[in-house]
């Protein structure tokens, strides 16, 4: 194919087949054509279950006593929910350590996107045995939506001191690598070549970089943040001790930086934490590292 007039494509970036070509009949047809989540959701319950079972690493399930094939727990009381309604293009899998536990310790949320690819909306992996912080509701009981609408500063401060990142209510389970490998296998099964997401925080972008993601948007912002946290930078200067989340040594760790960014420090460089988008090509590691040598 010949390359590159200076003209950009006028149509949106949509290079995958049309949704009608992505039907579940592809299970019996051309193995190279992608299948959408909407198509999988149109299957009868058992077939759907068989396919979505592939999303969860078996080792994660056996760890909490859930049978990876039947998805039943024998003794532990752990339970797993699959939300993949027909006529929707999304799937959500939730695992709780007990049926009466209101907090999930594992949540995975995927959906078809408008470019006929798949988005990872939400991935939560928290250690159910670790302390629970109420950073998700403010003092008046409003949901904080990860601290984006309301904030529970007292509880956030406790969480920060306990080593959590913003948006976490418990310490991480440390299994993101296994889960993302499994996701690669699942995407391959559906003949998708990539998955994209919007990183919720600076720390999550950092984690996803290490898991092989590159940036569709926001690589420069990450570089700018790294640069401005160096000596003489605007973010370094804004770590002035004016709040518990802006202590002078916080540039040294990804978590410290993330709390400062959560606290609004990007204003110092006229930027905001929004409109970042990351992408991972199945089976490939992009090798992006925007904060070399900075520990988590």
């Amino acid at each position: 194919m010949q390359f590159l007039n200076l003209r950009l494509k006028q149509t949106p970036h949509k290079v995958a087949p049309d949704p009608s070509a992505m039907s579940v009949s592809q299970l019996l047809g051309d193995y190279a054509l992608p299948i959408s989540i909407r198509a999988v959701n149109s299957l009868p319950h058992d077939a759907r279950q068989r396919i979505y079972r592939m999303l969860i690493p078996p080792s994660l399930l056996t760890r909490v006593g859930i049978n990876p094939i039947t998805w039943r727990a024998t003794e532990t009381g752990a339970c797993i929910e699959l939300d993949a309604a027909p006529d929707t293009g999304s799937v959500k899998i939730i695992i709780r350590d007990s049926a009466d536990s209101s907090d999930a310790f594992f949540t995975l949320d995927l959906s078809d996107n408008s470019f006929n690819g798949i988005d990872l909306h939400f991935l939560l992996l928290s250690d159910p045995a670790s302390e629970r912080f109420r950073t998700d509701v403010d003092a008046q009981g409003h949901a904080t939506l990860f601290g984006t609408t309301y904030r529970n500063r007292a509880e956030e401060e406790r969480a920060m001191r306990a080593g959590l990142a913003p948006a976490q209510i418990r310490a991480s389970l440390g299994m993101s690598q296994v889960v993302l490998h499994q996701l690669d296998a699942f995407l391959t099964f559906l003949s998708h070549h990539a998955i994209s997401l919007e990183p919720l925080t600076y720390a999550s972008a950092w984690v996803f970089e290490r898991r092989g993601f590159a940036y569709m948007r926001g690589h420069k912002l990450m570089d700018d943040i790294e640069r401005e946290f160096q000596a003489g930078g605007k973010l370094r200067a804004a770590l002035d001790g004016s709040t518990p989340f802006r202590q002078p040594d916080q540039w040294q760790t990804i978590r410290g930086r993330t709390w400062a960014i959560h606290d609004g420090i990007l204003e110092a460089m006229d930027a905001r934490w929004n409109d970042l988008r990351m992408v991972k090509q199945v089976g490939k590691h992009a090798g992006v590292n925007t904060a070399p040598g900075v520990p988590y």
């Binding site: 194919m1 010949q2 390359f3 590159l4 200076l6 003209r7 950009l8 970036h13 590159a214 090509q281």
Partner: peptide
Amino acid sequence: ITDFGHPFEPSEP
């Protein structure tokens, strides 16, 4: 060279 921006329209140089 891999990128994730808007694709280019193929054409003759």
